[in-house]
């Protein structure tokens, strides 16, 4: 007769093994997709960026030639500048506006909070094509509502070609991006504000803290993880702004709304320059990774 302890150890080992097998089997479907649709394309993106790759012929190894060309490509720099403008404007504005709206609606009765949350979240769940088409109509040069209101209110003398004028086009894109970006941060901030430890806020108020001090010293640090998440997500979304450009301006007028994502698409899927498009994708990924790392670092320090 085997000792009970030995038999018990064997049983628990086998249990652990079974549990591990089950756990890995549950993970397997996701892992298959993750490897097939994330890791493999990422690897191929980097790999192809060293080739002159196009449709219908073997790829030609050209080492860093795509990257060299990239740094001499005027449109790429314009696209990078436009992308950075979009990120630098939309990320802080989205965060600040969402926080302000969230702090206002979180003080309202529960029913009102829910209604406002739904209203602000609507553009997120509405199809981006539908939203963009509505905006396109509002910005229309000939019968758009902005020109109609502007002229009737005496703000403008003649119709402005909002999407066809280099002075306004990028601003219009950023405005649309903002309206579709604030929904999720608002919902997240409302939850974060609800989760703030009320006893700490009350203690600060008892100690004579002003509302601003109570927010800045007590609430804000507790909302930092949410803010960090919002910053990273909004930054990535802004960098990847594509549908708006594709549907509204095709990067024009005169490349004034050209973004890196659209330029990648144009090179890869219009000109079939897969290698060149991938080289741009690698650069974009590096920029996003660096910015995300900085944001995480700053967030952790805070």
């Amino acid at each position: 007769m085997k000792p009970r302890t030995s038999a018990g150890r064997l049983t628990s080992r086998s249990l652990v093994l079974h549990e591990n097998v089950a756990a890995y089997l549950f993970l397997l479907p996701f892992l298959i997709f993750f490897v097939g649709f994330v890791l493999y394309p990422m690897f191929m993106c980097v790999y192809t960026s060293f080739f002159d790759a196009t449709m219908g012929r073997e790829d030609i190894f050209i080492a860093f030639a795509n990257y060299k060309e990239l740094f001499n490509d005027e449109v790429f720099w314009i696209a990078l500048k436009n992308t950075l403008v979009i990120v630098l404007v939309s990320v802080p504005v989205t965060c600040a506006f969402s926080l302000w709206v969230a702090s206002v609606i979180s003080k309202m009765p529960i029913a009102a909070t829910s209604v406002f949350r739904c209203i602000f979240y609507l553009p997120v769940v509405t199809g981006s094509v539908a939203v963009t088409m509505v905006w396109k109509w509002m910005f229309n040069n000939y019968y758009g509502i902005f020109n109609y209101l502007g002229q009737n209110m005496g703000l403008i003398d003649k119709p402005i070609n909002w999407l066809g004028d280099t002075r306004y086009a990028l601003g219009c894109i950023i405005l649309i991006l903002l309206t579709t970006s604030v929904g999720q941060p608002i919902v997240l901030y409302v939850s974060a504000l609800d989760n703030v430890d009320k006893s700490l806020v009350e203690a600060a108020e008892v100690d004579g803290a002003t509302p601003f001090q109570a927010f800045w010293k007590v609430k804000w640090p507790q909302m930092m993880p949410t803010t960090l998440y919002i910053l990273v997500i909004t930054t990535i979304n802004s960098f990847q702004c594509f549908a708006l450009i594709q549907l509204l301006t095709s990067g024009g007028p005169k490349n004034s709304t050209m973004t890196i994502m659209y330029y990648i698409y144009y090179n890869a899927f219009k000109l079939y320059r897969y290698g060149y498009g991938n080289a741009m994708g690698v650069i974009l990924a590096i920029i996003i990774a660096i910015l995300s790392a900085v944001q995480f670092r700053l967030g952790r320090e805070k």
Binding site: H18, V21, A22, L25, L28, P29
Partner: peptide, 16 residues
């Protein structure tokens, strides 16, 4: 339960 769990996981894989 373990057998059911494994069967379920296998179903998910085969579905894919």
């Amino acid at each position: 339960k373990k057998i059911l769990a494994i069967a379920l996981a296998l179903c998910m894989i085969f579905a894919q």
